[in-house]
Write a protein that binds this DNA or RNA. Structure first.
Length: 215
DNA sequence: CCACGGATTGGCT
DNA sequence: GCCAATCCGTGGA
């Protein structure tokens, strides 16, 4: 795990437009250090939001109490509450004042699976299908990682919640599609994911993806 | 496998 | 009052 910390992504990695940052977040490691242990996983699905041009973005209508973290410049965590019971988290993107973020939608667990399971199901052991269900969606990720409103605004260059380089195992192809669960700005193809990965949200758009790039 | 509806509360008109 | 960047259980094909 020291290798994760030494490859922590620097602030300037995040200081560019969300639509550009988003595909580069695929394959990176999302890590949380708790007193009970480390929870970490590989990002496999994201969506970009940019309030300057994107009506679906929480930041589209200008700064409010809820979305102010999105305007603070890249490299912070924006956590919001939705549907009366779920949290979702974004990596803030861009330069200060622009109101951009990248929603983390799918993570492949790497470390701390028992901790994730305790948070999701109240017990440490998981079956195969339950493991896939741990983090295959934005609300599920926040439950598994124990992320709530209290973590809104956390600096991602700190030592408790951060992103790290993916290491040597990142042979995958990134594809894109329209975003999921929104009604405005549907035409933007700002959802990026690893084709065929088990931890990508199950959706019919998974069949109509477009190739985007590979590493 | 797929489609649909209910849960439940904060944010904004 | 209306609606939401979701999830889960149910019911039918």
């Amino acid at each position: 795990m020291n290798s994760l910390i030494s490859s922590k992504l620097p602030k300037d990695f995040y200081q560019r437009d969300a639509a550009e940052l988003a595909p580069d977040l695929i394959g990176k490691i999302f890590c949380r250090k708790l007193s009970s242990g480390i929870i970490a996983g590989r990002i496999v699905e994201v969506e970009a939001y940019d309030g300057r041009v994107d009506e679906a973005s929480h930041s589209f209508g200008g700064i409010t109490r809820r979305n102010e973290v999105m305007f603070g410049g890249g490299g912070f965590l924006y956590v919001y509450f939705t549907y009366g019971m779920y949290y979702c988290c974004n990596v803030v993107a861009g330069i200060k004042g622009t109101g951009q973020g990248v929603l983390i939608r799918g993570i492949e667990p790497i470390e701390g699976i028992a901790l994730m399971s305790r948070n999701r199901y109240g017990r440490r052991k998981v079956t195969g299908q339950e493991k896939i269900n741990l983090t295959s969606g934005p609300g599920k990720i926040c439950i598994a990682f124990g992320i709530t409103k209290k973590n809104n605004g956390v600096d991602l260059t700190g030592d408790r919640i951060f992103l790290a380089e993916g290491g040597d195992a990142d042979n995958f192809s990134v594809v894109c599609s329209q975003r999921i669960g929104i009604k405005k700005s549907r035409e933007l193809e700002w959802r990026f994911f690893i084709e065929g990965n088990n931890y990508v949200t199950k959706h019919k758009l998974n069949k109509t993806f477009k190739t985007f790039g590979s590493q």
